[in-house]
Design a protein around this nucleic acid. Structure first.
Length: 792
RNA sequence: GCCGAAGUGGCGGAAUUGGCAGACGCAAGGGACUUAAAAUCCCUCGAGAGCAAUCUCGUACCGGUUCGAGUCCGGUCUUCGGCACCA
């Protein structure tokens, strides 16, 4: 008996792969077809790798290993998204440079990833916080700047006085900061903005060219882009010479407008509010400052608002309508809406809450209960009377354009990308504000992030504001001050897939010939939480870089897969606060990396959320041990045939190959278990099948299969360079099939037929088996089922 | 709230275009081996009725289409993910 010492075996092969450079990809080898398998790079947190990470990473590793054996030149890199808030907070707390914390975490992540046996090419590793990487992040920003896709303008942020910093909506709970519970308010700050709406139409159209993306992800991006066609209409403020514009997709309801609503941030408010209303308005605006967009747009939430005292004139009928302020109107778009309570539910609720009139202009529904938003005959609408919604919308827009009161307009919900962060631990924005009033780029890249002793923002200014020496500079002899905001985390991750191809290039983001060969990414795997955000921003940057001739393709990711969330034992989210986080180190230590990989892949479909279950790892280990004794301790592998295993072997090769391709790893493993169970019952395990099977298992369990390969088959060459096993389609089909015979839909008997037997023969056998002579209806689905319908 | 996804045994899950519901694994119970234990191997394992062959029910809930529905359609409930400076 040779025992299975997984610790020694795993250590041995980790060392061997590293020494031999087994997984180093020659990116200039164009002789083989390419396959680019990419994981979304992790943020190297202080907690180390989470058991959820290997879920996705193992899946790309399996596909990568299979593709390599199938003759592809595989690029399978990894890196770290290493700028981010936790490192900055650590630095503020301890006074240490965030890079120290980050480097330590990267080392830990690297150790853990290597322990899992992933076939990454570590020579191509990147970390986004390193100057040789962020030089090119800054460079992309400069290209966007030069092409006019950037602007610098006042934008609202969540300001927290107590923490002296800007917060994400996510960091705010009930209007207070999550950390510390300090009040939060909206504040205007000058920020860099990227004009992603300029690419809205292309980002929308590009989705149709991505058949291998999940439909739900594409739908999520479509909703985020939120294209709508409507009209922009101008409303004049009575007796003031002022006016505001509203966007509406329902221009047909203009005759039903009974008031207008401005968002609390609207610039007109201070100029139109009457003296009597001023106190109420000021008070209301203050209240709104701490609410998030989700709270504000909740349809069922109480519709708060306040009257400005001003009136606007409805351009279609000259009616005088009150102008209100309400937080259900957000700052984007025009920041103002025309309210038609009869035909919009939010307006309806607002009008009920504030006793505003409701005027019906379309027949249908019951306005005592809710707004009528359906199609119908227009009434009380002058020129629109008698028309349906679509006709009325078109007629109204034509009329507005003719009279110069409004224009047809396509509106996108997609907002500009706010690109400034009041943080230290990010890429410096290479912009200088000169004394002569000009703003220019600093093209001497990389612009290095300076070291500091205090990383905290102060007095509403970003941390870099305190780097006085770094801040003051001169460009072409003119003195100036640097931008002290940094870039958001999503900047670096919006283009890293290009850099992996040629990560050490100091002259350009990557060699053009290499890019043309390797792009797009063939398989991209990462969490569904990136449906919008990262996945939309990277499409934007890559589209832009395509336009500039730097990326060879418009769409960077050909196939996209989102692994499901890994939950705690009781189906709850794993989190530090719940104390239910599983450390992969412990699992590897106790069961080995192979068992962990088998377990995670066997849990269920890769895209489903699944609860962790310690007992089930035991099953994975048992399977590994069975394979070990089958090859090492049994004496069954012989140069002989075994007809009992022939069909099962070919079926197994076919199913496992197809399942890996489709990323159905749980059923692939199930099939391999069935095969192993069958072999255990036999005395002869033909050498050909034994050799083929160990290759099938290798992508999931690389360590044990390498060891078996060396001991049983070939001690000179690693398994990773072997060719993938083939199957014979004919041998995957059964000659004899057992099918059920139903009478009136209930199974009454089973009969054996030969494959593809003639229908009348099958039906005759079926009738005999159940003793039916006259059936009113006979249904035969070839090789599947017989159903005889007999009326009583 | 809006958008997206998912609900199948004690548990994780399986089930081409609608065609034998519960593959494979875990747990549990029984047995073999052992002085004993561990490991391993064999058997049982959705619910109910029956001595039994067998019958009835069963894929979140209500209804529909169909010879036939876990799968398709309409409605309801629950859970999860996203919602713009967390990662």
């Amino acid at each position: 008996m040779i025992p299975f010492d997984f610790k020694a075996i795993e250590a041995k092969w980790r060392e061997r792969w590293e020494k031999d450079g087994t997984f180093v990809t020659d990116i200039r080898d164009f002789s083989k077809p390419k396959f680019y398998a990419l994981d979304m790079i992790p943020y190297p947190s202080g907690e180390g790798l989470h058991v959820g990470h290997p879920m996705g990473y193992t899946s790309t590793d399996i596909v990568s290993r299979m593709k390599r054996m199938q003759g592809f030149n595989v690029l399978h890199p990894i890196g770290f998204d290493s700028f981010g808030l936790p490192a900055e907070q650590f630095a503020i707390k301890t006074g240490n440079h965030p890079g120290v914390f980050t480097d330590k975490n990267i080392q830990n992540f690297t150790r853990q990833l290597k322990a899992m046996g992933f076939s990454y090419d570590w020579t191509k590793q990147i970390s986004t916080h390193k100057p040789e990487y962020y030089k090119w992040t800054q460079w992309v920003f400069e290209q966007l700047y030069k092409d006019g896709y950037t602007s610098h303008k006042p934008t609202y942020v969540n300001w927290c006085e107590g923490l002296d910093t800007v917060l994400a909506d996510d960091e705010i709970v009930d209007g207070k900061s999550e950390r510390g519970g300090f009040p939060v308010e909206k504040r205007l700050m000058k920020q860099w903005i990227l004009n992603i709406p300029a690419y809205a139409e292309r980002l929308l159209a590009g989705l149709d060219e991505l058949p291998e993306w999940p439909e739900s992800t594409k739908e999520g991006q479509r909703n985020w882009i939120g294209k709508s066609i409507g009209a922009e209409v101008e409303f004049k403020i009575e007796n003031s010479g002022l006016s505001f514009r509203v966007f509406t997709t329902r221009a047909d309801t203009l005759f039903g407008v009974t008031y207008c609503v401005l968002c609390p941030e609207h610039e007109l408010i201070s100029r139109i509010t009457t003296t009597e209303q001023r106190d109420a308005v000021d008070k209301y605006i203050k209240e709104c400052a701490s609410k998030t967009d989700i709270e504000r747009t909740n349809t069922n939430a109480e519709k708060t608002g306040v009257f400005t005292g001003a009136y606007a004139i409805n351009p279609v009928n000259g009616e005088r309508v009150p102008v209100w302020i309400g937080d259900y109107v957000l700052t984007y778009g025009t920041g103002a809406v025309m309210a038609v309570p009869a035909h919009d539910q939010r307006d309806y609720l607002f009008s009920k809450a504030h006793d505003l009139p409701i005027k019906r202009v379309i027949e249908g529904g019951d306005l005592d209960v809710e707004a009528f938003v359906g199609d119908g005959n227009h009434i009380n609408s002058g020129i629109l009377d008698g028309l349906n919604n679509e006709q009325a919308i078109n007629k109204m827009i034509e009329w507005l354009e003719e009279k110069g009161l409004g224009t047809r307009k396509v509106n996108y919900r997609l907002r500009e990308w706010i690109f400034s962060r009041q943080r230290y631990w990010g890429e410096p924005i290479p912009v200088v504000f000169l004394e002569n009033g000009n703003t220019v780029l600093d093209e001497n890249l990389p612009l290095i992030l300076p070291e500091m002793t205090d990383y905290k923002a102060k007095n509403g200014r970003p941390p870099l504001d305190n780097a006085t020496e770094w801040k003051s500079t001169e460009i072409d002899g003119v003195k100036g001050e640097r931008e002290t905001c940094t870039m958001p985390g999503t900047a670096a991750t919006s283009w890293y897939f290009l850099r992996f191809i040629d990560p050490h290039n100091d002259k350009e983001i990557a060699d053009k010939e290499l890019l043309a060969h390797w792009m797009p990414v063939d398989l991209y795997v990462g969490g569904a939480e990136h449906t919008v955000g990262h996945l939309l921003y990277s499409r934007f940057w890559n589209n832009f870089l395509f336009d500039k001739g730097f990326s060879p393709v418009k769409e960077p990711f050909k196939k996209l897969v989102h692994p499901g969330m890994l939950l705690g034992e009781n189906g709850e989210k794993m989190s530090k606060s719940k104390g239910n986080v599983i450390n992969p180190d412990d699992v590897i230590n106790e069961y080995g990396a192979d068992a962990m990989r088998v377990y995670e892949m066997f849990m269920g479909p890769i895209t489903d959320a699944k609860p962790w279950n310690k007992q089930n790892i035991e099953g994975a280990r048992r399977f590994i041990l069975k394979v070990w004794s089958l090859y090492i301790n049994d004496d069954k592998i012989k140069d002989e045939e075994n007809k009992n295993l022939e069909k099962l072997y070919h079926k197994t090769v076919k199913k496992v190959t197809e399942d890996y391709e489709n990323m159905s790893f749980n059923t692939a493993i199930s099939q391999m278990m069935i095969f192993v169970n069958a072999v255990q019952k036999e005395n002869v395990f033909p050498r050909e099948y034994a050799c083929g099977f160990i290759k099938l298992l290798n992508p999931v369990a690389p360590f044990i299969t390498e060891e078996i390969w060396e001991r049983v088959f070939d001690s000179n060459n690693v398994i990773d360079y072997q060719t993938w096993p083939q199957f014979n389609e004919e041998l995957t089909k059964d000659d004899e099939i057992e099918i059920p015979v139903q009478v009136n839909g209930k199974v009454k008997a089973r009969i054996k037929i030969t494959a593809n037997e003639a229908q009348d023969k099958v039906l005759a056998a079926a009738k005999q088996a159940v003793g039916v002579t006259n059936a009113d209806k006979e249904i035969y689905v070839p090789n599947k089922i017989v159903n005889l319908i007999v009326k009583k």
